[in-house]
């Protein structure tokens, strides 16, 4: 009797096990938090060195069109104008998303509402496979197929925003499609049946009911695609031309933030201005991915389907 009372009041094997378990899982989660914080910290501290150590004017960095970190301009300031890369990065991202969205939504509608059986059976595995194709493979196909084709039609080298856009379009299409399928499947079936029962045609149902109900998640899908396109490095680097020039049309060589980083970070010396300036580009990438993240959260919070 007393023995049981004593056992009730003292720790046992089970309570020790539980402490072990807590320590293990808390340690893992702490490692992830430390990791994220140190990524943010290291990239940021390197990225701001251009402005704090090398005293480059932030506005000139963002609006300058000349990227030549080794030389000084007329004002004695180094030429680190990131605008061409910022413009190119945004151009390829937005163009690829604009191009991919209608296709992605059409395919998603086809899979969910027009031919759910055959469409899903055939398209679903293919799209899953395409999501998994490594980006260098996309880049390689861009280099061997898209660039020569553009060269053939428009002349010049063939590399540039158009080639980048086409490669990214193909890359983000499966991503946006599979998220759009999820979005449309999340619309409750009674939305559809109610609309059809009221005599609406399928198109009216799709346009007025389905797309509206799924709109927030469709937007999220597009933003996800854009985030992927914006951060994509190698595939774009292979077809963009890698010349830091302000893009004036879609078929001349230029550079994105990512392509500039991958091409040059190994050719500069740590701690020098040319190197710091590259880290500033990485910082822009980091900040943009946070912005995409925030947008997705904002849309997600506002647009939950209430049923």
């Amino acid at each position: 009797m007393d023995d049981i009372q004593k056992k009730l009041m003292s720790p046992s094997k089970a309570s020790r096990e539980d402490i072990t378990g807590r320590i293990i899982s808390y340690t893992c989660i702490a490692a992830i938090i430390i990791l994220v914080i140190s990524i943010l910290y290291f990239i940021t501290s390197r990225g701001v060195a251009t402005f704090t150590t090398n005293h480059v004017n932030l506005w000139q960095f963002l609006s300058g069109e000349e990227w030549n970190p080794g030389t000084l301009n007329d004002h004695g300031q180094p030429q680190v104008g990131a605008l061409p890369m910022i413009v190119t990065s945004f151009s390829v991202t937005i163009l690829a998303a604009l191009l991919a969205t209608p296709f992605a939504i059409a395919v998603a509608l086809f899979m969910t509402d027009i031919a759910p059986k055959n469409g899903a059976k055939f398209l679903q595995p293919v799209i899953e496979l395409l999501v998994g194709i490594p980006s260098v493979v996309y880049g390689f196909i861009g280099l061997t197929v898209v660039v020569p084709a553009i060269r053939h039609i428009f002349g010049g080298t063939g590399s540039g925003i158009l080639a980048g856009t086409i490669v990214l379009f193909v890359m983000v299409l499966p991503t946006i499609t599979s998220l759009a399928v999820d979005a449309l499947r999340a619309v409750p079936a009674y939305f559809r049946s109610a609309s059809l029962a009221l005599g609406a045609t399928r198109f009216q149902t799709i346009y007025k009911v389905l797309l509206r109900a799924a709109m927030p998640r469709l937007l999220t899908a597009v933003i996800f695609g854009m985030a992927r396109a914006f951060g994509e490095a190698l595939a774009v680097q292979m077809v963009i031309g890698n010349a830091v020039l302000m893009p004036h049309n879609l078929v001349t060589p230029t550079a994105t933030l990512t392509s500039q980083l991958t091409t040059n970070i190994g050719n500069t010396i740590m701690g020098t201005l040319p190197n710091n300036a590259l880290w500033s580009l990485a910082l822009i990438l980091l900040l943009m991915s946070l912005v995409f993240n925030l947008i997705i959260r904002y849309i997600g919070k506002r647009g939950e389907i209430k049923s």
Binding site: M1, I4, Q5, K7, L8, M9, S10, S12, A14, S15
Partner: peptide, 20 residues
Amino acid sequence: IYRHTNINDSKVNVYEVRKH
């Protein structure tokens, strides 16, 4: 109250409680 002990107490070993 179980065996003259208040088992609704954070000091009590809950795993032991559940064995009984």
